[in-house]
Design a protein around this nucleic acid. Sequence first.
DNA 1: ATGTCTAAAGCATTTAGA
Length: 259
Amino acid sequence: MLIATFNVNGITSRLPALLQWLEEKQPDVACLQELKAPQEKFPEAALKEIGYHAIWHGQKSWNGVAILTRGEAAQEIGRGLPGDPADEQSRYIEAAVNGVMVCCLYLPNGNPAPGPKFDYKLQWFERLILRAAELLESGAPVVLAGDFNVMPTELDVYKPERWVNDALFRPETREAFHRLVAQGWCDALRTMHPDERIYTFWDYFRDAYGRNAGLRIDHLLLSPALAGSLRAAGVDREVRGREKPSDHAPTWIKLDLGR
DNA sequence: ATGTCTAAAGCATTTAGA
């Protein structure tokens, strides 16, 4: 089972790039973030034409998440991260796909830090940690996939000293991520490639992709029930070098579920 | 501080978010 996460940075403007990648890669599951489209503007028909079902949670202008599945339709479990009924940002959706619980998330960026946006990021993180604990307790095979907006360690940043005060790399942010993983999650990319510099995002500014000035901020975390099934993990970095790309590249894992 | 890209408001260009 091939599961990918891809922050598309606007599904309307990136649709050709998304369709091309899906047709090449044929992931069984693709978690998308930053749709930047209202619910009714999601390109459901274009995706169906190439064989993908979709469930999505849109929002005008910003945010938005989706889970695409090839063949079997995903069975939606819920949308919106529990813990704050007043939170109206579309950043979380979860579904059961072929016996696997797939949680697609778009954690807040949090800049500028400190400030209210950073506070929101940390609060959102705490809610995610609570939901993740519930999921672990259930014992189910779960994957948390998405744009976490966190570089977990210095190995995940091209120039760590430049990022120490950024919301994506501040101690509070890294501490929250490590606390989440310490619940028992397996960081799939890092587990398969312990010492490698792997990036999933390159800024549009100053030819960051050309200079390989990247960040690893898109992650797939596996529950213990799934960790033993992990066979491969990687980043389709060439997608970032194409016409009108997202600033993120698709990030994927291969699981052997023995079926 | 800079840099790039996109959508929205509203119909040219500015603004905000990342």
